[in-house]
Design a protein around this nucleic acid. Structure first.
Lengths: 202, 202
DNA sequence: ACGTTACGAGTCTGACCCGTATCGTATTTC
DNA sequence: GAAATACGATACGGGTCAGACTCGTAACGT
């Protein structure tokens, strides 16, 4: 919604105001269609309009094209981030790892894989993607730093690599179904413990 | 090439035989177009035919449609797997981790992200994907088991989770560009060492 | 020589889609 | 009530593509 009404000193333009219900319906229809399996490029304005029960013109009146609409729709999707409790570093990490790809909106899990190809093709889409995940990375970074400060974690660990270590397994499992034999539900606990302990004999 | 000539007791059908050069050209054109950034669904038979210097009928004579062609093309792509030397478990793991998404065919890296959405939509495509990666998982599994047998790795580790731990970070970085600040080149070493040592203070 | 099959190139029909324009209608301000 | 703007619906021209088809030609067996 880059250029919608809103601004404070609204001169209250004449004529019929834009329907908020239409706004919602369009965004929802977009996310629904994506979650139902449509890929980004297979998604058509016509299909969105039909699903939303809206004329095409109503969409074009609000957004310049499919990309602009998608940008807004995905922004709506990201939902709230998990909030670590701050008691146990291990428990906080398990919480964060378990939250990967498991947004409040259940459609998110279905939509994420669709973004993978887009991410490498357009700088804009890459930026959008980073805007969503980088605050989550920051959250994990803070927990790890806290662990170091508290002496629970070693001071010489590579925090960035550790984040990838924790995030990677969950992400490939949720997004890519990497290993069908891996139980997704217990994975956060097992990943965190394995990363904590290491695998070398000692 | 599900139903091509080949079979032993070939009755040697009359008429002009199919051109092997056309076969190659079609497959190559398909992989090239994908590697150049075309998504799977944006890929059209017409474009492939034009690129391969081939008539559309020549493609339809061989494959039922885009899906069948893609299936064959991707089978060609998988290339050879890295072969661990077998001396040091750590070095073997670094080799395997470094090989993730880095097939002999340089086009593979570009194509992999395009597969992510497809994997969750069709059982066939999921199977194809698993056929490619499961032998690689097996290779890593064997190295880990060897490590346990040799006493380099603890006997109580969860091998499957450990594989995810090693694979995940590399995969999200190569395929999803998860963290732009992470140096991809040194990542295999750092991931393997981090997994070996763990991060808990001791 | 002749039948058979493949070849590259091209045509044709029917989809589907984009983005714009135009209906008649509804809702708001002045 | 009049002007302005929104609405859903639909039509339009322009585009791409799937598949089936047709050419004239090329390569193979007998």
């Amino acid at each position: 919604m880059a250029d919608m009404t809103s601004t404070a000193d609204a001169p209250r333009s004449p004529g019929r105001p834009r329907s908020i219900r239409a706004d919602e319906a369009i965004i929802e229809a977009t996310l629904d269609l994506l979650a139902e399996g449509s890929t980004i490029e297979a998604l058509s304005i016509e299909a969105i309009a039909a699903r939303a029960g809206v004329g095409k013109a109503t969409i074009y009146r609000r957004w310049a094209g499919k990309d602009a609409l998608l940008l807004d729709a995905l922004r709506r999707l990201k939902g709230v981030m998990a909030q670590p409790a701050g008691h146990s570093v291990r428990d906080d990490l398990v919480l964060l790892v378990g939250a990967i790809g498991k947004n409040v909106d259940p459609r998110a899990a279905k939509i994420m894989p669709c973004l993978a190809p887009a991410v490498n093709r357009s700088a804009d889409q890459f930026q959008l993607y980073q805007n969503i995940i980088s605050p989550r990375r920051q959250l994990m970074r803070e927990v790890l730093r806290r662990g170091i400060d508290e002496g629970v974690l070693r001071a010489d660990i590579d925090v960035e690599v550790t984040m990838a270590l924790l995030t990677g397994p969950m992400l490939i499992q949720r997004v890519l179904q990497w290993n069908p034999d891996l139980d997704e539900q217990s994975l956060p606990d097992r990943v965190v413990d394995a990363v904590l302990e290491g695998i070398r004999a000692r």
